[in-house]
Nucleic acid binder design. Structure first.
Lengths: 230, 230
DNA sequence: CACGCTTTGTGAAATCGTGCACGAGCGGCC
DNA sequence: GGCCGCTCGTGCACGATTTCACAAAGCGTG
């Protein structure tokens, strides 16, 4: 019972799908569904049933042959594996348009990532209140990170300041960064960075549109989550 | 000169990197750099040089051996391949927190994706002005899509309305969707969907944090754009 | 004009991810 | 208690992607 250690290394592709499964399973649990088959989950997630089984098998053998998976238990196991059995406060760097929207968007806290602080450099923004948080000066970053045990930083600054923001975060002790600025960050080994770039997403869509126009009218499912026919 | 047709099918993984290269190259061009080697570009993009060469080779043989690539020409070719030689107006569905932030964020227009319209269902939001656009009723969607030749829709609604938003978009003639709602959309074949889910990104970071805590302190680069040591 | 240095473009090998097919295990029924 | 039907877990083949390694091809120099 004492925290079974992580069994094996989970492939990155699987890790990227687990949150999706988790969301669906949590919804199902709320809707009163007790059990689900790999087929059922696959349909809801828009993926192949074999993939679901293989993905879940990395967590352990938590299914029952002939029956399926117990939803609640699966939710528990995925949460545990993803480290979602406790909250992860995040600190947002940059209280501009995007930073404010992120702080104001309640979705973070609900899903286990409460905003532990917002910092900025602009004196005009400091001490204003955004999403229930008082904006503090960048210099306070180390104190915020220490006191609230923040491990995840969100960069919502203009591109030009993003690298500096990353440096500050790393120096303050943050080891995971979600970067919204369209620049490639340099960070020391041991720090994980993920990037979200809306322009990139749109440009990928543009490619598919362009291709549809140039060649015949061919269906080209995109890489991410693709929809299935209803 | 008359639009060389697309040479081959470009792998999806490559398509996802081209916008990154494009961004870097455009920055370099602006900084006055004329030529760049696969090595140089690789370093700036945080990837392997061979990968850069292979990626670019899908566009054609636009490099000069012993010299490198001409930045301006590469920019031109990537833009052409991605279909960025003209603007792609987008329509935003949902004028809530996120929709407003997206419309207000100037980055879209600058990068060739002007906001061609915003629609919502809430009478309280309709006719308010967001990011220079008057919010219109969802019923006006077909008219907006037709008149402005919109091919790309952005879903910024609550989860519960996302599927309905997608249905409206598809019916209005949109063939590419960028979905910010944390749900799997069902769309007919021929429609491309990409999903951006902040909670998923954070949960992936959480996994890596959790793993760092459980096992030794091991460096685990994430899937997306990872940073290199400075 | 030939040589050597540099950097591209690309086969081939290695790795990673996906999907199929099927044996194994479980619950329910007779 | 044994049989049947269902669904998981997984070995295997396949396809996609990454990486390596090197021949081909410019460019500058003597």
């Amino acid at each position: 019972m004492a925290g079974q250690r992580t069994r094996r290394r989970i492939p990155e592709a699987t890790v990227a799908r687990l949150p999706e499964y988790l969301k669906i399973l949590a919804d199902q649990a709320e809707a009163g569904v007790d059990r689900i088959s790999s087929d059922g989950l696959a349909e809801l997630a828009g993926v192949n049933a074999a993939k679901v089984r293989k993905d879940l098998s990395y967590l352990g053998s938590y299914g029952t042959r002939g029956v399926g998976y117990e939803v609640a238990y699966l939710v528990y196991q995925i949460r545990r594996e993803l480290g979602l059995d406790h909250d992860w406060p995040v600190v947002i760097v940059g209280a501009g348009n995007l930073g404010q929207a992120l702080a104001g968007y309640g979705g973070f806290g609900e899903r286990g990532f409460p905003v532990g602080g917002i910092v900025d450099l602009d004196p005009a923004k400091i001490d204003t209140v955004v999403g229930g948080q008082r904006v503090r000066h960048l210099d306070d970053l180390p104190a915020i990170v220490q006191s609230r045990q923040v491990a995840i930083g969100v960069i919502a600054t203009p591109s030009a300041s993003a690298q500096s923001a990353a440096d500050h975060l790393v120096r303050a002790g943050v080891t995971s960064i979600l970067n919204f600025a369209p620049v490639v960050l340099a960070v020391p080994p041991g720090v994980t960075v993920r990037k979200v770039d809306l322009a990139v997403e749109l440009q990928i869509l543009s490619y598919h549109e362009q291709r549809r126009a140039t060649n015949g009218l061919r269906a080209v499912p995109a890489d991410g989550a693709r929809g299935a026919t209803a």
